[in-house]
Structures are given as structure tokens and as C-alpha cells.
């Protein structure tokens, strides 16, 4: 068995999924794959069942928003961990704000259930196939998604923290 380096794993995933793996990099030594949202579930499922890489553990699911990237405003980030090989992999999938839908991974990992609900609660990202995609931390009646960048944190009249006072 060859050593499981990031390069080797990335190559192996590329061989399996080809063009749907949009990019691979290793910021701060963690293998980070940007994948097409349509295959995010497939990649995670494949990694989970692969006899060599053995990803049994979903560490974290969260969302992020990049308002400037047209057509890829939202991002879902999965952190996976192979406890046997001690390898961490980050999978990122960008989805458009006009249609923020991605397949749920709660069928693969129970822990994704609440984390996806939290991501929905914060960003309004729809996880297709989720058993109970409702708000979790905020009140049910809330009619917006508070972590989106368009919602300011503080009242707009406050000026003491504006960038112009700091020469920017």
C-alpha cells in the first residue's frame, strides 16, 4: 500500500470523479477539494466506503457566503476525518444564490442532521432529502437568514468602527 499523501488521495479521487473535481489544494496542509455540488454527496459517500482512505467521521458541516462571486454565492464546507489513517479532508461546494440547493449527507452521517439545519438556519441553503429541514437556533418565525452578509450586525447609525477612520 502506498503512503496516503494528500497528492495521492487527490489523484485517486480525480481518477474516480474526473472533471467534477474542480480544484484541489492544500491550504495549511489540509487537502481541500472544490467539487461540483451535484457530486458532493457522491464524493463523501465514496470516501466513506473506500477501503483505503476510510473516512468514518464527519467532523463538521458549515456554510459560507461569498457575495462577490457571481453564480457561486454560497458554499457548503464539509470537514471529514479518517480516524484510522488520521487524515483530514475538506470538501467545498459552491452553489448559486438563485438556487441554493445541495443534497443532504444526513443519510450517511447522523451528525449532519443538526449541522445542516444550522446551515439552513444561518444561510438558507436547502439540503435536499433532509428529514427535517427547519430552523434550529433561531425562532421559527424568523423571515430572513441572519448570517448572510447583507444583514448588518449593528445599527447603521454607528460610525465609530468605519474603515475610513483607519485610513482604508
Amino acid at each position: 500500500m502506498s503512503e496516503l499523501t494528500n497528492v495521492y488521495i487527490a489523484e485517486k479521487i480525480r481518477n474516480q470523479f474526473g472533471e467534477a473535481i474542480l480544484s484541489a489544494s492544500e491550504p495549511y496542509d489540509m487537502l481541500t477539494l472544490v467539487v461540483n455540488p451535484s457530486i458532493a454527496h457522491g464524493v463523501i459517500n465514496w470516501l466513506k466506503n473506500d477501503a483505503e482512505i476510510k473516512i468514518q467521521f464527519l467532523t463538521d458541516v458549515c456554510g459560507a457566503q461569498f457575495p462577490e462571486i457571481d453564480g457561486q454565492e454560497f458554499c457548503v464546507i464539509y470537514h471529514l476525518h479518517s480516524l484510522t489513517n488520521n487524515i483530514r479532508i475538506r470538501i467545498k461546494s459552491f452553489i448559486p444564490a438563485s438556487n441554493p440547493i445541495i443534497a443532504t449527507v444526513s443519510d450517511l452521517f447522523e451528525s449532519a442532521n443538526w449541522q445542516e439545519r444550522e446551515t439552513y438556519d444561518f444561510y438558507g441553503i436547502i439540503f435536499e432529502g433532509h428529514p427535517n429541514l427547519t430552523r434550529i437556533l433561531n425562532v421559527d418565525e424568523m423571515d430572513y437568514f441572519p448570517l448572510r452578509k447583507e444583514y448588518p450586525l449593528e445599527d447603521g447609525t454607528r460610525t465609530d468602527k468605519e474603515d475610513k477612520y483607519f485610513g482604508r
Binding site: 491550504p27 495549511y28 481541500t32 467532523t59 463538521d60 458549515c62 459560507a64 457566503q65 464546507i77 475538506r90
Partner: peptide, 30 residues
């Protein structure tokens, strides 16, 4: 850059996922 760091908290793996855009505050911190 983006970074994930975790420590063994009292209850388990406490992780920080940080996306920095170079600004003075995190772009995203989970």
C-alpha cells in the same frame, strides 16, 4: 487563507474553521 484547527475540549473536539480575507475581522468563523 482558510484554516481548521481543533483542540480536545472538555467535551470533545472543539474546532475552529476560519476563513480570512486579509481583513481585520474573520471573513467567516465557524
Amino acid at each position: 487563507g482558510e484554516i481548521y484547527h481543533s483542540v480536545e475540549g472538555g467535551n470533545g473536539e472543539l474546532g475552529f474553521y476560519l476563513i480570512s480575507d486579509g481583513g481585520r475581522a474573520p471573513f467567516r468563523l465557524h
